[in-house]
Amino acid sequence: MEAVNVKDRSRTDTSSPLRHIGEGLRDGTPIALGYFAVAFSLGIIAKKAGLTAPLGFFSSFFTRASAGEYGVYTLVAIHATYVELIAMCLVTNLRYMLMSAALSQKLAPATSWFHRLLMACCITDEIFGISVSRTGYTPPAYTYSAALISSLFWASGCAIGIVAGGMLPTSIVSALSVALYGMFLAIIVPPARRDRNVLYALIASFFLSGICAVAPIVSQWSRGTRTILLTILISSVVAWLRPVKKRESNGTE
């Protein structure tokens, strides 16, 4: 009897990959819808740069970076140099380095290099957000399925935007583009309710981000640059003032 109980308890940790895929698809769907709207407007820019719909699909499926792709397409349009293109990719996507470092802490120690590589490639702001905010180690199947469905919508949105850009009414495009932000709120607010330090971090982020959008010099910088600098600044200060105590993230105080 005792032995059975122990076995049962250990089994809850290695729950089936099918369930993780289901959860990934469930959480990936609102992301996919938001992506579709954003990618659609991105497609309109890609068209100006001379991309065909298949090329837009290919490019978006394998890049998956909103600000980064926006930057790339504007550079393609003006036939910029390859050095400029590389610099643009580095600056607009630098935050993925931080996210990759953070996500590395959410993988079970025994995870193979292949899964580490693939998990890293899945990183976008949103996929990272839902993957890192899970309790305990993040199962790769969860991240893969969420990344797959959202990338398909992202790439299709871009391709359809190239073909049909400007045919949807602006009110619908505007409404769809907010889906992303609604989703962000659903990711960041519940942890803030549980952990007061996260709440402080969020209030500081909203406040400083708002100021930087209107402040004289800072508001001239690109949104990507501001995001990186504010993230490093605010996270450092909060980490210094309110260090996280050594405890595995199981939600108990």
Partner: peptide, 12 residues
């Protein structure tokens, strides 16, 4: 703190 701060900064 990075994920929460990044998402908050990108939202507002």
């Amino acid at each position: 703190y990075v994920p929460y701060v990044t998402l908050a900064v990108m939202t507002f």
